[in-house]
Design a protein around this nucleic acid. Structure first.
Length: 578
DNA sequence: CTAGGGTTAG
């Protein structure tokens, strides 16, 4: 961030004196900006033509720098504002909202605070609702909700308009306090302005974030009641909300009822279905989207790749990759990470690596995707190598990264490396271990036969051990045939998570069998049968010519199962003989 | 001439 502290002071000489404006010059500046002349050119012209250097001309330039949708350059707008101040001109009622919006876009809190001071000095911070509301937005997007709240509370009630309410509500919702945003919304319904479609869209997204279906329905009824228009934003918000609240039926209905759909509408469906694990349905929606002639954007691509990854659809994933190449979309950030994940999950770790290596910018998600991928493919050494590269590159690992390296270590039997990483994760990287990480550590210790250490670690956990931790211990007992400790682990597992007794009982009966305690093994199996515990059957799938073939343990439905089974037997005996 | 809207991962 460029420092602008040097020019934070308002020119004393100009204070209180209205800026001189050249009324003839202003329209020409505005006209140039409206035509094809670039903002930079106009700005340069204004700088070297003193008669054009007016406050109104600066307003036009700053506005143009903030407004130009996708090519907006908020930092430049801030610099031009500074230049204006340095040149002895004072901001007016219009300058401040423009430049504050720029600060909000750039998340430039320090600069915004200085402009807040300008607003106070020129007496516009409370008297002008535009200034007050843009200040609120600035503080809200910078995470300073307390400051935004103070501006709201200090604003006289008759001046607290719908935009002030909406800005603050949105601030809470987007900062991760949807409950507080909704509380404010209901307060507004009590004694505030009437909500409009924009407020509604924000409030619906709050319901989605909470995953509260009944609350979402309540807002939906509010919408019908107040006869708010179901524009494309509201429609998209409704679809997204119902999907996040697991109201699939409602989401489909809302989507179907939408007169106008845009790419966001389709994305909301694709990503929402994928989030619910309905990957096949997500891809169906994507096919419909293509039939409807709507161009996918990068959000669509991420949703589609994610669905391919989870279905193991390598061929479809490759098709998406080819599509990206054809459209010259370079796989960076979101898309690149999704590609890496897709290739890794579809078993093509080589392609995952080559996409990863081709990326020019890599964030924590990129590194984690490839590390987890390598861990899944049993390439622990390579995973640890990339972990080191990540640290050298200055990218801080997070909890998922550690889950990747720890599981890589435990599968490869790298006990010391794993335990050291477990130690370092909070001490060096400031990532507090969660129960999953303790589960990995217990797994590492248990596999190495260090049961006393494993038990001590569980006792020392700052939180309640969950099924993952007890499951790890139970699994280690299975490997080492520790009956007593296994019984202890299972008892605790059933206590913290009675629903997961299926796999626990299977493990336990295996422990009994390996200790030749057939009666106990049989007893465990019997009690499973009695309580109707179901084993989740093993499952795998493969894609051939775009068709997915699923195989479940004990499943006899595949038309070519006998041929497949015979081939598999041949493979197995062949590989055993080597 | 000014302020507030929906979808993004491991």
């Amino acid at each position: 961030m460029t420092s602008i502290a040097s020019s934070s002071r308002l020119p004393h000489s100009a204070a209180g004196i209205p800026p001189a404006s050249d009324h003839a010059a202003v329209p020409s500046v505005v006209r140039m900006l409206q035509s094809h002349v670039s903002v930079g050119t106009v700005h340069a012209l204004v700088i070297k033509t003193p008669p054009l250097r007016t406050q109104l001309a600066y307003n036009a330039i700053i506005q143009a720098l903030v407004d130009t949708d996708h090519r907006s350059s908020p930092l430049e707008a801030i610099l031009v504002y500074r230049e204006m101040i340095a040149g002895g001109l004072l901001p007016d009622d219009y300058t401040l909202p423009y430049v504050l919006k720029a600060c909000a876009c750039a998340i430039a809190l320090k600069e915004g605070e200085q402009i807040h001071v300008h607003a106070i000095k020129t007496g516009r911070s409370v008297s002008n609702v535009y200034v007050n509301n843009t200040l609120m937005r600035l503080y809200a997007v910078c995470g300073e909700l307390g400051a935004a709240r103070r501006l709201f509370d200090r604003c006289p009630q008759w001046r607290r308009d719908l935009i002030a309410w909406t800005t603050l509500i949105q601030g809470y919702v987007k900062s991760g306090f949807p409950r507080e945003g909704l509380r404010l919304f209901f307060a507004m319904c009590e004694d505030g302005p009437v909500a409009d479609e924009m407020t509604l869209a924000i409030v619906l997204s709050a319901c989605g974030r909470l995953g509260d279906l009944s609350l979402g329905k309540r807002i939906y009824r509010y919408m019908l009641d107040k006869e708010l228009r179901r524009d494309v934003f509201v429609g998209n918000a409704l679809v997204d909300m119902f999907l996040k609240c697991r109201g699939l039926k409602f989401a489909y209905r809302m989507f179907g009822q939408m007169q106008v759909k845009n790419v966001v509408s389709w994305n909301a469906m694709i990503l929402g279905l994928a989030r619910q694990g309905k990957f096949g349905d997500a891809l169906k929606v994507f096919k419909n989207m293509q039939s409807a002639g709507v161009e996918p954007d990068d959000v669509t691509i991420v949703g589609v790749l994610n669905s391919c990854a989870n279905l193991g659809l390598l061929e479809s994933g490759k098709w998406v990759h080819a599509y990206l190449r054809k459209n010259k979309i370079w796989p960076d950030s979101f898309i690149g990470n999704a590609l890496v994940d897709m290739y890794a999950k579809c078993g093509s770790i080589d392609r995952a690596l080559s996409v990863f290596e081709g990326m020019t910018t890599r964030d924590v998600y990129s590194y984690t995707a490839i590390i987890v991928g390598l861990a899944m493919h049993g390439e622990a050494a390579r995973a640890l190598e990339i972990f080191d590269e990540m640290v050298i590159a200055g990218v801080n690992p997070d909890k998922v990264t550690f889950l990747g390296v720890l599981s890589a270590c435990s599968h490869a039997g790298l006990t010391q490396e794993g335990l050291q990483l477990f130690q370092e994760m909070s001490a060096v990287y400031g990532v507090e271990p969660q129960t999953e990480h303790y589960g990995c550590a217990v797994d590492l210790l248990g596999r190495a036969g260090m049961f006393a250490e494993a038990e001590a670690l569980i006792k020392a956990m700052p939180m309640e051990p969950d099924y993952l931790v007890w499951g790890a211990l139970l699994g280690a007992c299975r490997v080492h045939g520790k009956v007593k400790l296994g019984e202890f682990a299972m008892k605790n597992l059933l206590k913290v998570d009675p629903d997961r007794d299926g796999s626990a009982h299977v493990l336990m009966s295996n422990i009994y069998s390996s200790a030749h305690r057939w009666q106990d093994a049989l007893g465990t199996r019997k009690s499973m049968k009695q309580r109707d515990v179901e084993k989740i059957p093993g499952c795998s799938s493969i894609e051939v010519d775009g068709q997915v073939h699923e195989f479940r343990k004990g499943d006899k439905s595949h038309p070519k199962r006998s041929e497949i089974s015979r081939l598999l037997d041949q493979f197995m005996s062949h590989s055993r003989s080597h």
